[in-house]
């Protein structure tokens, strides 16, 4: 059994044991809670997994430093919202869309879809240091100062120029030319 604070830290660090713990710990109650809606088991399983992913993502992307409620309550409220959204979609003649409040980037994704796909396919071709810097800055939403504290770069300028070189390398790998 994890202490709640320690559990959040482990989820933020993407530790599989903590993710498995959350999945197993709350699954039965979650299915009972969401099962009251007219959704099939597979839908509920998808929603449950997505709710866990949203929890982890919000922790990792610094959208959620402290939980005002328990992990369980937070998961269930995300899950309930996702379930309503999915249930609404299934209603005959439903045209009204419910905004995605869970994944912040949900609506933005479509605009950058094609370029993101190319980047997704080439990102792992970068070296380890580049992947680490770019992930910390663009995924984990760490500032350059925070990254500097976590890394061995001499100063912020060195870090900034390293990040710029990494972006340039990624563009080359993706054959993306920025016209200037």
């Amino acid at each position: 059994m994890f202490e709640e604070k320690l559990l959040l830290e482990k989820l933020r660090n993407n530790e599989p044991a903590a993710i498995e713990y959350v999945y197993v710990q709350y699954k039965k109650a979650f299915f009972g809670f969401i099962g009251k809606m007219e959704l099939n088991k597979q839908d509920i399983e998808d929603i449950y997994q997505d709710a866990i992913i949203a929890l982890i993502e919000n922790l990792q992307r610094r959208k959620l430093d402290v939980l005002m409620s328990s992990v369980k309550t937070y998961l269930f409220s995300i899950g309930k919202y996702m379930a309503i959204k999915r249930w609404h979609k299934k209603l005959p003649g439903s045209s009204e869309t419910i905004p995605d409040l869970v994944f912040e980037e949900g609506q933005v994704e479509d605009v950058y879809d094609s370029m993101a796909t190319v980047i997704e396919n080439n990102f792992d071709r970068l070296g380890h240091n580049c992947r680490e810097i770019l992930s910390m800055f663009y995924y984990e939403s760490l500032t350059l100062d925070e990254i500097l504290q976590k890394s061995s770069y001499a100063n912020k300028d060195v870090l900034k120029s390293k990040k710029s070189r990494c972006l340039k390398k990624l563009k080359e790998l993706c054959k993306i030319v920025i016209h200037g």
């Binding site: 994704e109 950058y112 993101a116 770019l134």
Partner: peptide, 8 residues
């Protein structure tokens, strides 16, 4: 797009 790719 890089941010979206990393999230995905």
């Amino acid at each position: 797009s890089l941010q979206v790719a990393l999230i995905r």
